[in-house]
Design a protein around this nucleic acid. Structure first.
Length: 187
DNA sequence: CGCGTTTGACCGGCGC
DNA sequence: GCGCCGGTCAAACGCG
């Protein structure tokens, strides 16, 4: 956790090691809604999503309930494509992939990424009724950089409230206008 | 025993 | 239609 620092997308990588001055955290948040060139920097395919609707993440997709999934399929048959929530990407310089952010995540998949020797991991928030997902992936170019992509927003409080990273989270929420999950590391 | 991870299978979309 | 690709499922497994 000592080497948590932010890589600013708009800056050359010359001085990518920064002390964690998290008041600048918002610079690191890339919204898929904004459709800026920053997405290109991340090499993500946010623009490839067909529908970014502003629906709240309701339980239209219950992992443990097969019948509900059938409903979703029915919906799709009516011509409704799978709706996508906006996604938010972070870049963080860290040795470890697992950035504990105060929420509880359950890993549900891992896939190899093309042109990247590192795999991408898929996590889902384990909170009841919370369908927030995130993907964690390491940059092929710079293996010191971890890209975390959040999908959806938490509608529930953080479950852990540990050390000083908690107030950092608050900072982020203030600056960015949404409630990212990021922060404390269980040490 | 409850919860989280691992990992191959599966599935839908898309390009050819 | 077929194969690739990104994403998800779920059974088996691991661990406290």
């Amino acid at each position: 956790m000592d080497n948590y620092s932010i890589l600013f997308p708009s800056q050359p990588s010359s001085s990518s090691y920064l002390s964690p001055h998290l008041s600048h955290m918002q610079s690191n948040i890339i919204s898929s809604q904004a459709n800026t060139s920053l997405n290109g920097y991340l090499g993500m395919r946010e623009e490839g999503y067909k529908k970014v609707s502003a629906i709240t993440q309701q339980s239209h997709e219950n992992p443990s309930n097969r019948t509900e999934q059938f409903d979703v399929k029915n919906e799709k048959k009516k011509g409704l494509k799978k709706e996508r929530k906006p996604r938010y990407a972070f870049q963080t310089r860290s040795q470890v992939d697992i950035l504990d952010d105060g929420y509880r995540w359950r890993k549900y998949g891992q896939k190899a990424v093309k042109n990247n020797k590192f795999p991408r991991s898929y996590y889902r928030c384990t909170h009841q009724g919370c369908n927030v997902k995130k993907q964690v992936q390491r940059l092929a170019k710079d293996e010191g950089v971890v890209v975390t992509t959040y999908e959806g927003m938490h509608t529930h409080p953080i479950e852990k409230s540990n050390d000083n990273f908690e107030h950092i989270l608050n900072q982020m929420q203030i600056y960015s206008g949404f409630a990212p999950s990021f922060g404390s590391v269980t040490h």
